[in-house]
Write a protein that binds this DNA or RNA. Structure first.
Lengths: 210, 210
DNA sequence: GGGGGATTGTTAAAGATTTAACATCCTTGT
DNA sequence: ACAAGGATGTTAAATCTTTAACAATCCCCC
């Protein structure tokens, strides 16, 4: 995979959307799709679709379009989804538990293989098939498989501490659901998902129009 | 509130982060903060902080900095958070239930006032204090309060249909957790949160460095 | 086998966002 | 009262992203 240039974050997000549409198209037995069709289905412009794909190579045929299955496979490979990924979750509260059971992860190749918490009350109880384990066992589990991806669903106050321990254990990609800014060393990828902030965006835009 | 120009989406997201830091600072009894301090705490540049604020007015004192409480109040007002907002959730699956119980919403002024589902099995059971009601009752509930904000936590296949009904009922801001692109008419604000896509971003970036 | 229509890949232009630079203004100390 | 230091607000430059335009290519039909 030859990525000579820095790929915009937004492009990566759109690739996901494209891939979902392509999978649908393939399942419907459609043999070619145009950038226009992809664009319409995903809410972007056709130029955007072609530009996004151009970062990675040439996947279509001029005058014709793209083969859904082929392009789907390419995109999945670009995204690193040509394999399954084990994922651990820290924090067995409501959010952590819901994420652990969320079907959407498995559908895209992510397997929740462990849930950890510091609350002794919770240790031992199960979420779905998975038993909640004490945080101290994280390192062992992470290095055993190994696991590279983790989700943080703990209170804001302990997020930085938890993230540090995850990194020390060997986790290299982290999604942080705690509404706080945490830092990670070079080489570790961090993404923050702030649920309340999403609602705040809505109230801001609603306020704008009045 | 005089917003003469179009405000970047990213700016809105950062305001949330600033406000959280400012609240902390105020609680600690700090009397002034600089753009540099805000920047450091939220992971942006000081210039960015000042630029973001400049869209809305002048809130600081040259040579001094900002008063945390004052700036916090301004930002909350800008975001439309100088009041509480009722919110309804459609879809009482695991994700919907977790969101309904998520403490982070209430802390930022969002009250979940209703949960709706089409599954007859679920109707009548409770999530926390709130009883799951059939989708048909949505319109009535929304217009009674009225409710302007809604969260979609239903399968991708029914998301568009649900969103249409929400809009018809009077909802004007929607967060969509279903991994599918849905469309809304002019005047309705839509935000998509794709949880699997967040993990995919991580795998992409991890793949990049090898 | 050649022309018309269609669609990609790519280059250039436009637009938006971020960063940097600096003039302005405030506080403090002498 | 005034100078020095420091932080904002604002303008300009740089960077990044999106949109538009078009040449290159392919398929289909006659």
């Amino acid at each position: 995979m030859f990525k000579k240039f820095k790929i915009p974050e937004a492009t990566v997000g759109r690739l996901t959307a494209y891939s979902r549409f392509l999978k649908e198209a393939e399942e419907k037995g459609i043999s070619t799709v145009s950038s226009q069709q992809i664009a319409k289905a995903t809410g972007v412009t056709p130029a955007q679709v072609r530009k996004d794909l151009a970062y990675f190579g040439e996947f279509g045929t001029r005058g014709v379009g793209y083969n859904p299955r082929e392009l789907y496979n390419y995109i999945m490979k670009i995204l690193g989804l040509d394999r399954r990924w084990p994922v651990i979750i820290i924090g067995a509260g409501r959010l952590g538990a819901a994420l652990a059971m969320y079907k959407g992860f498995a559908e895209r190749g992510f397997d929740i293989v462990g849930i950890f918490d510091i609350d002794p009350e919770k240790i031992g109880s199960k979420i779905g098939e998975i038993e909640i384990r004490p945080l101290e066992e994280l390192k062992e589990k992470v290095q055993e498989l190994p696991v590279k991806l983790g989700i943080v669903a703990v209170p804001a106050a302990s997020a930085q501490q938890v993230v540090d321990y995850m990194v020390e254990s060997g986790i290299r990609g982290i999604i942080n659901f705690a509404p706080v800014n945490v830092s990670v060393p070079e080489g570790v990828v961090l993404r923050r998902v702030d649920l309340a902030s999403q609602l705040e965006y809505l109230t801001f835009r609603l306020g704008e129009s009045r």
